[in-house]
Design a protein around this nucleic acid. Structure first.
Lengths: 120, 120
DNA sequence: TGACAAAACGCAGATATCTTCCTATTCTTT
DNA sequence: AAAGAATAGGAAGATATCTGCGTTTTGTCA
């Protein structure tokens, strides 16, 4: 489905939110598999059945400039005896796009008042 | 199924033969996945349904001293954009065990007269 | 010979990423 | 409004290795 440039699809919004949430909690970056698990729990699932969908979305968002990524140091992955991860982080453009998505469709986007950054 | 020390099970014989075959053709080592594919073709399949069985066999044979292994250089795997392999090679003890298996049960073991090393 | 215990087998799934192929949806243009 | 183009979604599988759990097989001992 074509779409207007700068728009975020529901899955993409979820990814962004997860990413920003993790950043707020001190995680400098995230990887696909991690997001997959997070989304599976918190979202009503629905989105994201096969992992291909997620990785394609990550690619897309990177091309749009909403995310940036780098491969994990192979030595780190090796030490932990697991496959290498691709580490993403949300860019400023990504955050802006998320805000725009908020404004455009405030129904499902961020029902909670930002846990971890509550202004007293 | 318990067994006498130094004996090789059918799957193990297959692994050994694949390994030696590859060595003869110039491949210094092999890895689990590669063997899995080889066995799936040449053997009537039967052996090796899930991969767990194969990796367990490789472990066993390593502990018995028939194989030795080392992890692939993580940088190489990284460059080729795939998971890291564990590289095995057949030891002298392994070859000896294979010969013993030949003598003990010459039915299925090496039907072909060693393709690639035919003495003219 | 019969029973026990050890070991092997098979199934399933975790860990990660990515590709291909087909279907469904949406945007844009006429 | 209808048609066409582009893109997203979904299923499946490739690439690798390894763990756990329950079942089956087999050697050995009584």
């Amino acid at each position: 489905m074509r779409r207007k440039k700068g728009t975020l699809l529901p899955l993409e919004v979820s990814i962004m939110q997860c990413g920003i949430d993790l950043a707020v909690r001190g995680a400098p970056h995230f990887h696909g598999f991690m997001i997959a698990k997070k989304i599976k729990d918190r979202e009503d699932a629905k989105l994201l059945t096969a992992h291909g969908t997620l990785y394609k979305a990550l690619d897309r968002m990177q091309k749009s400039g909403f995310l940036e990524s780098q491969w994990e140091d192979p030595l780190v992955a090796a030490q932990q005896r697991r496959p290498r991860r691709r580490l993403y982080h949300v860019t400023a453009a990504g955050e802006a796009a998320l805000v725009r998505a908020h404004e455009a469709a405030p129904q499902a986007t961020s029902a909670q008042p930002n846990p971890g950054l509550a202004t007293p």
